[in-house]
Design a protein around this nucleic acid. Structure first.
Lengths: 209, 209
DNA sequence: AGCTTTATGTTGCAATTGCAACAATTTTAA
DNA sequence: TTAAAATTGTTGCAATTGCAACATAAAGCT
């Protein structure tokens, strides 16, 4: 699901104009949008590759999210505050919308209504992802977090074998647990015959329920 | 923000009809909608008071959410699956919409577009709540979870004093930690002079940053 | 009012987890 | 291709947490 699905490129142009979107063109390795939290905004990656980066109180930079073409970001998608900034990994083109502008707009055009619906569908996807993560994070042990994650991942494709969409280090972040403790638990699960791990390929050896 | 804000009651009626909503009337203490997960649905509490209940594998019933008049629920708001059901705490009237129906509908009416925008705003609120909870749940100690929660709660009203919107038992659930361990940590925070607790009134004694 | 249920407060103890530190392997970039 | 950076794998140990088991207080119900 993309923001401009079912809208002709001609009408996309009109939208960009009417909604007073601003076009941001950045070069590779350029930092931009230093204070993204200030506005109630929606960003759209038209071309390129961008990372959302958070600088924590220690001054450590953490990658919050990676955004590719057609991805949407903004306060309504990811929690962004003054600590966040964006880094272009490639030359990129980004459009910035004002969320309130979109809502306030009175406009009787098909393409505008389609746009709002697209936004709705995207938010729906995001909510499902967030619900899944909350479901995982509320589990009280690393083991149960892992198993919940595995179940969600495997159910979504309907197979008991799947590939991790990120590194184990990132998985630990996603589950909000210590990496080495997670590694220990993965080892236990392997030894007890619950799972098989080959690189990022995970096979669930237990039956669902 | 309510689902039918800025829509006249006459047009609300039309919407209910056009979107083929079904009206569910239930008596106090009645259980209903046993398999809410099946459909991609949106529910709206028109009158009454309703609880979302989850029966876990042990057969324990857990209250997932309490819904009052004008509240919206459904798979796109709360993760619902076959284990969930609804319980009317009072005589209630609920409208059920088919989410896909809403999206597919081609309709050039102000009230329909307003309705979609309202949905968008509601989802926006939900996303913010979920982001907040994720921010809290990813903290690694009970102390940090509490402090993050306090900060979010106090920032939202701009005061360092606020009332818990639920019991301490429910707070422990929200933070996904053991209640007694949380109690212990609250005691520590009190003794170290970080906070003051009187019933459900919390006062933050430290400066923000 | 009296009974029942739910919430709060507390503690000991065992289990789990985070942290630090390191080696080995893999990936990335010049 | 080679050096640098990032990821994976492992372990000991201390700190945190969950769990069980209470006592007390408060709230809800008839």
């Amino acid at each position: 699901m993309n923001l401009f699905d079912n809208i002709s490129s001609k009408n996309v142009m009109k939208l960009l104009y009417v909604l007073e979107s601003s076009k941001v063109v950045v070069k590779k390795n350029q930092l931009f949008l230093r204070n993204i939290a200030e506005q109630n905004m929606i960003g759209f990656i038209d071309e390129g590759l961008v990372e959302v980066i958070k600088t924590d109180y220690n001054g450590n930079r953490v990658i919050v999210e990676e955004l590719e073409e057609n991805d949407v970001f903004g306060t309504f998608v990811t929690p962004l505050n003054g600590e966040h900034e964006l880094l272009a990994l490639e030359d990129s083109v980004i459009y910035i919308f004002d969320y309130d502008e979109i809502i306030k707009m009175k406009m009787d055009k098909d393409y505008y209504n389609q746009f709002v619906k697209n936004l709705l569908l995207i938010m729906n996807e995001k909510i499902i992802q967030k619900n899944n993560r909350i479901e995982i994070l509320t589990k009280k042990s690393i083991r149960h977090k892992l198993l919940e994650y595995f179940d969600i991942e495997s159910s979504s494709i309907g197979l008991r074998v799947f590939h991790l969409p990120f590194t184990f280090t990132e998985l630990a972040d996603y589950l909000a647990v210590d990496r080495s403790a997670m590694q220990r638990e993965l080892k236990n699960l392997k030894e007890e015959g619950f799972i098989e791990v080959k690189g990022r390929k995970i096979t669930l050896l237990y039956d669902k329920y």
